[in-house]
Design a protein around this nucleic acid. Structure first.
Length: 327
DNA sequence: AAGACCCCCAACCGCTAACTT
DNA sequence: CAAGTTAGCGGTTGGGGGTCT
């Protein structure tokens, strides 16, 4: 028996999601939490395959996602992490908790690849045009030296990237490894208007719903206890959340210029946040920890000698096959 | 003003690792 | 342990919006 399709091809809707579908999905996940995606289309009545629902959630509806306007620091980090990890977008995304792997992948393919290519063309001295590392034939000794150098540079670059911007009170695993690192960037970029729109949409929708206000503790109880406690339709779950609570629950605020809301979002979405803030992060990137484990070990190894042994001068003077020209 | 072209990104597809029975 | 099932990942595509001519 072959592998069955993830969903019946007949009657499955494809293409862009409508706000209504988003609402249904969000309200369902709000009630049941992410996971068990196979049950989502059945239980919600959405004419979407489970995969599509998961993708929609992880790439778009998931709280705390920052979209567009990649900062220099993020760019830098992506470039170096890509050099270090290759096209392991999920792993790279785990270091940028506010970005989805899809987003990073898209950004890499549409912006960074081009940028690096251009730069490499400018400084081409035997390196090829396609990647960071020359594919020209080299001797084994050269290759080993090169590998060592690449690892060395990647170490430094990662340390550097992680040390860029820092809310002062955040204590992260990275901060232990790399003393300069104190957390993810809190930049001026805004969340996706589309996410906002959904929040607004929900806001309006909820205003019309029979139930209105609930206490924050109720919202928090959802955060702390995502398992449904009793009977309810998705509609009930949604109506049990006030717009404000929804904002706080989802870690964003409809006023995107609010520094406070951004701070909250960043904090809540940070992978290194406290357990009580991390329901969605834990669930939306369930294998993040898994994928991070070897990386963390790697980082430890990277930073143990990298951060201590190398001065900042080296960072400046040590281009990552031409990428340093970017900065 | 309008058609052609380009770019971006949301979503899809296929593969595979991980989990369950 | 093997077969079946599910979730997640990375590559790719296509539609829509923006820019150019």
């Amino acid at each position: 028996m072959g592998r069955p399709p993830c969903c019946d091809k007949i009657g499955v809707k494809k293409g862009p999601w409508t706000p209504e579908e988003d609402i249904i999905l969000v309200s369902y996940i709000q009630e049941h939490g992410p996971g068990n995606w196979r049950a989502v289309p059945t239980n919600t009545g959405l004419l979407r395959c489970s995969k599509s629902c998961r993708l929609r959630w992880t790439n778009y509806l998931r709280p705390g996602i920052r979209r567009g306007n990649f900062t220099d620091q993020e760019e830098k980090m992506i470039i170096h992490l890509q050099a270090l990890l290759g096209n392991r977008w999920a792993a790279i995304a785990s270091y940028l908790p506010q970005r989805t792997d899809n987003d990073i992948k898209n950004y890499w393919n549409t912006h960074l690849k081009k940028k690096l290519k251009k730069l490499q063309a400018g400084v081409d001295d035997g390196h090829n045009q396609d990647g960071l590392v020359s594919q020209a034939p080299i001797s084994k000794g050269q290759w080993e030296r090169r590998l060592q150098t690449d690892i060395h540079m990647a170490k430094q670059a990662l340390c550097e990237a992680l040390s860029l911007d820092k809310p002062s009170n955040t204590i992260s695993p990275e901060s232990k490894i790399c003393p300069n690192y104190t957390g993810p960037a809190l930049q001026s970029s805004t969340y996706a208007s589309s996410t906002e729109n959904i929040a607004r949409l929900l806001e309006g929708w909820m205003r019309n719903s029979p139930k209105s206000a609930q206490t924050n503790s109720d919202q928090n109880s959802f955060i702390h206890n995502p398992v449904p406690t009793g009977s309810s339709s998705s509609e009930g779950a949604l109506s049990a959340t006030t717009p404000d609570a929804f904002d706080s629950l989802f870690g964003f605020n409809s006023s995107t210029n609010s520094e406070a809301s951004q701070a909250v979002s960043a904090e809540e979405t940070a992978n290194f946040s406290t357990p009580e803030t991390s329901l969605f992060q834990d669930e939306s990137k369930p294998n993040m920890e898994k994928s991070r484990v070897p990386l963390t070990l790697l980082e430890k190894w990277l930073f143990d000698d990298g951060a201590a042994a190398q001065g900042q001068d080296d960072l400046i003077g040590m281009p990552l096959d031409g990428t340093a020209g970017l900065f």
